[in-house]
Design a protein around this nucleic acid. Sequence first.
DNA 1: CTAATATCAGGACAACTGATATAT
DNA 2: CATATATCAGTTTTCCTGATATTA
Lengths: 153, 153
Amino acid sequence: MNAPDKLPSPRAAAVATELRAALGRLKRRLREQVITGAHVGDLTPSQISVLLRLEKHGAATASSLARAEGMRPQSMATVVAALETAGLVRGTPDPDDGRQTLLSLTDACRKWAKEGRAAKQDWLSRTISARLTVREQDDLAKAVTLLQRLLDE
Amino acid sequence: MNAPDKLPSPRAAAVATELRAALGRLKRRLREQVITGAHVGDLTPSQISVLLRLEKHGAATASSLARAEGMRPQSMATVVAALETAGLVRGTPDPDDGRQTLLSLTDACRKWAKEGRAAKQDWLSRTISARLTVREQDDLAKAVTLLQRLLDE
DNA sequence: CTAATATCAGGACAACTGATATAT
DNA sequence: CATATATCAGTTTTCCTGATATTA
């Protein structure tokens, strides 16, 4: 992959700095949208992440989700509770292990995601679509996979 | 640029979703570092953003910084206060307008940034350097400028 | 008894809103 | 007086830690 340097290259440091700055601004912008817009499509990043994971890897317990997301089980419980009241996720007790509650997407959620209704009303999607060329959208997508690799440690 | 569609493309929606998810995880990881590590290099994204802006555009008031960052003046005041106690930023009263306090980087901050000492001890920089090829770092940098364009509205 | 899961209660942090003082 | 800046105080959100019950 890369030379196993102990010290980051100046380039890496610069990218990291700019990325941090952009991160803060993006976070504020997203929250702004969540608060002002009454759109269902504007879920918190944590909630989105959980839905995505359930869709990709199937049903899971709250604890395993918390581990996967690098979050405490108690925090994940809050996220899951929100998704349950929104009707996007459903919990069924595991017949084999009474401690666990298996979480899965509801049909309503699948339909909702498939139709893309959520995303289309979403500020970030709209902005990406409006201000970036298709080529640039590809670049951004590639960068996101790079980010995911960093986060999977 | 792009076709002025009212509805985002499916691609844009997908990128937005993944980006949101990555955002949440990255945010948690960064905070973790800020808390555990006593490194000076680990500032909050807001603080980084302010330093970057002062370096690029020169001295500014807290209010103008707040406008530029899309933040409330009161919130910015907290950020600035933290930077002042860290000795990275200094406020001098505007001789022409007694209401304003002009903020500028201290020499210590410039030196600190120039040496890159801050960034080199930083988790994000280290990880980018260690887990991404130089080519991929370029891709990431390009994507960050795209993000900045989105945020400048 | 030990380990894993779920849940309740309280705390820290960074943003927010509202209100007030001061200077132009 | 009207406007802009700075600041004080309280609220919200999302994560955190600690403690406790339940079940395998």
